[in-house]
């Protein structure tokens, strides 16, 4: 059983750039990776794609085991700032 904290929670997605903070889709607010709450659900490995925070990349379900074995930080998806487009350059 994994430690009950946001980083391991099925409801939580880390920020795509700053992995210590993320977004809880249940509570609909930001929280930090080490927080925990009564809504914790362990990450369910049933999806086709995951976010690997260590590699800062989307990975396929077949790759998940390998990343977990290397102690990478896996979550269901990544959270992005709603206004990140304002900070991007043409290119």
């Amino acid at each position: 059983m994994k430690e009950r904290k946001c980083a391991n929670c099925n409801n939580w997605s880390p920020h795509n750039l700053y992995s210590f903070v993320g977004y809880c889709y249940e509570k609909k607010k930001l929280s930090f990776s080490e927080y925990f709450c009564e809504l914790f659900i362990e990450l369910e490995l049933e999806e086709e794609f995951y976010w690997c925070g260590t590699c800062r990349s989307i990975i396929e379900s077949e790759e998940v085991k390998e990343h977990i074995s290397k102690r990478h930080r896996i979550s269901r998806r990544a959270f992005m700032d709603p206004d990140y487009r304002e900070e991007i350059y043409e290119g």
Binding site: H15, L17, Y18, V21, K29, L30, F32, D81, P82, D83, Y84, E87
Partner: peptide, 16 residues
């Protein structure tokens, strides 16, 4: 510092 800020205000844009 970000925690301190998030206690004071509900915040959504981490980068900014």
């Amino acid at each position: 510092l970000l925690k301190e800020l998030s206690h004071e205000r509900s915040m959504i844009s981490v980068s900014k």
